[in-house]
Design a protein around this nucleic acid. Sequence first.
DNA 1: AGTATTAAGATTGTAAGACAATCTGTCAAT
DNA 2: ATTGACAGATTGTCTTACAATCTTAATACT
Lengths: 225, 225
Amino acid sequence: MLTDINLRIAPNTIQQQIIGKLRQAIFSGMFKPGDKLVEAELCNLLGVSRPSVREALRSLEAERLISIIPNQGPHISILTWEEATEIYKVRALLEGEAAAIAAERATERDIEAMRVLLKAFGKAVRRVDTVEEIDSTTEFYEHIFRLCGNRIIEEMIRGLLARINFLRVSSMSLPGRAAISFDEMKAILDAIEKKDNAAARLAAVHHVEQARLAAYESFKQSQMK
Amino acid sequence: MLTDINLRIAPNTIQQQIIGKLRQAIFSGMFKPGDKLVEAELCNLLGVSRPSVREALRSLEAERLISIIPNQGPHISILTWEEATEIYKVRALLEGEAAAIAAERATERDIEAMRVLLKAFGKAVRRVDTVEEIDSTTEFYEHIFRLCGNRIIEEMIRGLLARINFLRVSSMSLPGRAAISFDEMKAILDAIEKKDNAAARLAAVHHVEQARLAAYESFKQSQMK
DNA sequence: AGTATTAAGATTGTAAGACAATCTGTCAAT
DNA sequence: ATTGACAGATTGTCTTACAATCTTAATACT
């Protein structure tokens, strides 16, 4: 056996498609925090039956993207700044740990691969392509997580990122933020290359903390209007 | 306004009851890892309709207590030791952080309350009441989490504990483990009382690490038969 | 005998229809 | 302005249904 790669071909059930579509709709801002999701409307929009929609909604509820209040139905979750802060705190902790472990395990090839990803991010920054910025940031981080060999960490961070997704997008489009973000990520990579796990952890924590501050700016702005 | 206590009266929907019952059944070992859950059977056992069961199963899937493979139905999740290790690693990280913050914030009354909880645990240990041991341990920890003021940490740890629940139960019944556990928890509390956050973190991390080692013993035993 | 094939039965995925319980908003009455 | 009552909308739950897929067992073939 080569590796433990999961070869299972997952049939795309309708529900998975519904979940994907709805998640995308939430991320894209089509539904705004607090919006009420009416089951019948979703059925029409998606062209599927109510049971399918309801099951998909249960999954999204567990992801905390929506919350379902009995007899009141599903709403897009409202993220308070307090909650966002807590999420950033946990992110810092987990990403710091991941970076520290990655620093101990990274091979030459890993470093090289991450350099490529970072370069892609740099290009996106110069093109001012926010979507691509987020995507390449994510890929860069995914590499760190894979390196740290702890899928639980990866899983948890993925969940946390989903919950603050719109903050990430809006804060990344803040003038200057993306460029600074690039420098912070480069610092992480440099520390990993030097196999300096303490420095890698610090750099990762610092990056998240700066992201939090940037997010606060966008949060304030979004509250004002 | 006194506090931010949530006054909402949550109607007990059937699905919540189903989720509760099934979770309990899984924890109690009525369903074993790998067991296939047949929807029709669950309907009979619970006396509810298939749509209700299916929605509940989606929630449990998101909690990772079961996994649903398309066209193959739901199974009780199988926990590999590798995964369990990763969970203990993340737990150590999160509980360490929580303990450190708690050390900075604990008031006299908090300490007193935790002493009471710890004493209850000690009593359970002497009575060799495993269920009560787990319960009072949980309560002790819940207090720390409440102190650290980060509900995300609490939420994540709760999720992680659910996934390793049966390991906790079986390892807690290992001869001598509960008594050692008591000492480790006392060390955490002592550090918190001294407001020594570094010591509190270390004690919490140590406690989780010891729990991991104990869990490994039970895991090996459960694999052998 | 052992393996490949096929067919029957069981189970899941999805839909549609139904109805009681509950919520929401409106309008009248105090 | 607040309360009360009512109509309409929405959710929670159940029932029935059926095609798609999986599982298992029986069958045929080498």
